[in-house]
Design a binder for these strands. Sequence first.
RNA 1: GCCGAAGUGGCGGAAUAGGCAGACGCGCACGACUCAAAAUCGUGUUCCUUCGGGAAUGAGGGUUCGAUUCCCUCCUUCGGCACCA
Length: 862
Amino acid sequence: MAVKKAASKSESSWQDKSYNPKAIESKWQAKWEADKLYRAVIDESKPKHYALTMLPYPSGDLHIGHWFSMIPPDTRARYMRMKGFNVLFPMGFDAFGLPAENAAIKDGVHPMKRTFENIDRMRTQMKTMGAMFDWEREAISADPEYYKWTEWFFIKLYKAGLAYRKMSAVDWCPNCNTTLAREQVWGDDRHCERCGTPVIKKDLEQWFFRATKYADELLNFEGIDWPERVKTLQTNWIDRSEGAEVNFRLDWETAADALGIEEKGIGRDDAPPARELVLIPVFTTRPDTLWGATFMVFSPEHPLVDKITTPENKAAVQEYKDQAARQTEIQRGAVDKEKTGVFTGAYAINPVNQERIPIWIADYVLMSYGTGAIMAVPAHDERDFAFAKKYELPIVFVIQPVGADGDPPAQEMQAYIGPGVMVNSGMLDGTKVNTEKGRKNPSIAAVIDWLEQKGIGKESVNYRYRDWLISRQRYWGAPIPMIHCDVHGWNPVPENQLPVLLPEDVEWRPTGESPLKLHPTWKNTTCPVCGEAAVRETDTMDTFMCSSWYHLRYLSPKYDKAPFDDAEYNYWMPVDTYTGGIEHATMHLLYTRFFHKALRDAGIVEGGEPMMQLRNQGMVLGEDGDKMSKSKGNVIAPDVLVKKYGADSVRAYILFFARWEMGAPWDSQGIEGSVRWVRRVWSLFTDPVSFAPIPASDETKKTLRRKLHQTLRRVTRNFEQFEFNTIVSSLMELMNEMYKAREAGAVGTPEWKEAQEIYLKMMAPVAPHITEELWTNHLGKPYSIHTQSWPQVDEAATKEDSIELPIQINGKVRDKVIVPADATDDEIKSAALASETVQKYLEGKEPKKIIVANRRLVSIVV
RNA sequence: GCCGAAGUGGCGGAAUAGGCAGACGCGCACGACUCAAAAUCGUGUUCCUUCGGGAAUGAGGGUUCGAUUCCCUCCUUCGGCACCA
C-alpha cells in the first residue's frame, strides 16, 4: 500500500515536468509565513547566532544592490541555522532622512506618508527574495515607538556628560540646508556625502557627542574579527599623534602692550594670575627640535591675534585675516600652494632657551587642530622651512645627521627630517634621535622628561578625530529632546514626556528652512526646572544616531518599557556577524562602536564592542562598468529578473557572478548560466530516466560518493569563509557528476539517494524554494528542508583509491604516474623512475634529487 | 605626498599548506535535434607553433627542486587621508 502510494506520487510528479518558479515560490513563501518558519525566539537549548545586515533607506524601490548585500548573508544565516544555531536575521528601515523631506518640499507629500508607503512597497519586494527575515522583529527608525528611544538615548548621553553644545565653525551643506558631521564631508573638494555639493563653513552653536573621549578605545580592535581595511580606515581617521604640549609665553613687552598688564599694575617679575594670560600652549610631535624654534605661527582665527598685533601691523593682519576667511577650505588646503603669512609685530619667548621669537599668522596653521598655534622649526619641518625661506626668518639646525662630523650641517636647501643626534640644545646635546614616534624615540622621551621636570610642558596626544556633530536643521529626523529656558538654560525633556513627537501640520518652504522652526506653537513648552515658558530645540538628530542602535531595537521592537528587553539582549547580543558596505567605515561603523561604548559607560549595555565579526560586500556596477544611477539609465531592477527567471535563479546568480567582497559590473547574459543550473537540477530530480537502466558499477557509485563528500567539504568551508561564488560552482560541478552517474545507471542506488538528499541540503540556503519543493514533494521528505541539519562529511569517502601524480623534470611537467592512494614516497619514486619518459630525460644518468611533495607531485632534478 | 586594496583567457572568476594555472559559468565556434528559429543536448575554446614543443598569472629581480601564492624594486587601477604641527 505504502509502496504503491509512493510510486503513484512520484509518477504524478513526473507529469508536471516543467519547472514553474513563479508557482513554487509564491506557494512556499506563503506557507513559510503562515508557519512562522523564520520566527526567531529565545531557545536556551541552542547556541545563538545574530546575523545582521545593514538596514536600507526606504528610497522607493529595491535595487539589485540590495539583493547583493542581503542574499549572501541570508544564505549564510540559513547555513548557520542548519548547522544547529538558533539564528536571528532581522530586517528594518533607516527611515529618517533628507530625500523624503526634499521630495515633500517639491510636491507637498508629507515625508511620513511617503516613507511608510515606500516601506510597504520595499517590504513586499523583499518578500519575493525568499529570505529568512524575521518580520515580526522589524524596526523602523521613523516610527515614534522607535524614535522615542533615540531621544531617550540622547538624554542618557547628555546626563553622562557626553552630549554638549558649543559654538564652532561647522560644515554646512548649502544644498541640504543643514550642518554635517566631519565624517559626512568627502573628497578633495570637501563635498556633502549625500548630495555632492561642496560644503561651506558656518559659525553655529550645535550639539555634539564627546566621541573623542573614546578615541584611544576606538583604536583598539582586540577581540573583534573585522577586515584590516576597515580597521585601517578607522585608525587613519582617528589619526593619533604622540608628542608634547609646550607652553611658550608672550614676550613681556608684547604682553604689556597687548594685554594692558602694566596698566593693571602687574609688574614684570610678577607671578600668576597674569602669567596665565600670556601662556601660549603649542602641540608638537617633535619636542626634540624645540631649540630650533625660531618663530611662532598662529592660525588667522586664533583668538589672541587681535590682542597681540601691534598698531603698525594692524592693517596688514586684518587684510590677511579677511582674505583667509574668504578662501574656501579647498583653496586653503591646496598642498602645493605657496605659503603666505604676515608678521603681527608681537614676540614670544621660547621657553627652552629664552630666545625672543617673532609671532606670525599664516593659513597653513589650522585653528581646528592642536591649539591653533605652532612653534616653527624651519630646520626640521618642510612647511616651516618653506615659510622661513620666503620671509627670511632664521633657520637653526638642532639635529645633526648621523655620521656627519663636527660642523653644523650645511643644509640650506631643505629641512632635515631624519635620524641623528641633538645639537645646539643645551644639556641635551648628543641625545640620539631616531625615526620613531613619541616616547619610543629617545630624544623625544628625554625632552618630555626635561619639560615636565621644568614645568614648561608635558607629554600630550592629539587626534584628528573630532566630536560628533549631531544637530541637523531639518524636520525629518528624531527631535533633540532638549528645552531651553532663559533662566535655567538647557535641560532634557523629562523622560515621562517622551517621545517628543514631530508635528504633522507643517509648512514646507522651498528654502529648506526647518518646518520645526517655522511652526507657530510646537516649540513652545515649559521649563522642566521652573515650569515657566521655555522653548524646544528645533534641530533634529543626525540619522546616524538612529542607526547606531537599531541592532538593539530588533531584539524587542514593540517593547515599551525600555529600548530593548533585557532577556532578549542577554540571549542574542552581541551581533555575531555584521555585513554591509565599506563606505560606512568611518561613519556608521565608527559611530555605532562609539555609541556602544558610551552606552556601556552609562550602564545600559555590556561589553566593549557591539559587532564581533564584520564582512563587507563590494558594489554591483552597471553593465557599462559605471556606478548604477537613474540618470545614467544603467539600473538593474531585480523585480524584472524575478519575474523572468524566478527568485531562486536570481539568488544563485547574485552569489555566483562576482566575488562578494569585491563586487563587479552586472552582466545580463551571465544570468543564463545560473538559470540553466537551477533548471538542470530540477530535471535531474524530476525527469523520468529515459534510457534503459543498467546497473551502476561499484566504481560509478564510489566516484559519486567521493565527489559528493568532497563537494560537501568544500561548500561547508566556503560558507564559513563567505566565499559565495564557489559554493554555486561546486554545486554545478557536482550536478554534472550526478548527470554522469545517472547515465551510468546510479538512479535508485543508496549512493544516489544519499547524493540527492545531501545535494538538496547544500543547495537549500542558495535556492530555498526549489529545494523545498523537491525535498518535500519529489523526495517525499518531511517538511521543511530548512529545518534539517547540515550533513556531515564522510572523510573516508573523499579519499581517492589511486592518485595521479605529475612528474616534473627540472621544473617542467613531462609525464604522469598513477599510484595507489596509500603508496609510500619510496614506492612513488620508483614508479616515477620506471616511466619511459623519465628515463629518456635522464639519459642513463642518476638524478641529482627526487622530491615527492605531499604525494601531490614528483619533482626530479637532473 | 602618505596609508590601504587589487592586477590571472574575449568577460566574471577558480586554484587546502609553495606543488598539473585557467575549475565553474558567460561569450564564441562547430555539431545534433528542427522545414526553420528559439530552447535543449554534445564537442571545442589562454597565446604562439615548423606539431617536437615553446611562452604565459601587471613588469623586473630574488628565495626554492618547484612561485598566481613568500621577499625586494617598479608600473597601473581603485579607495581613503592630505599644510594635522
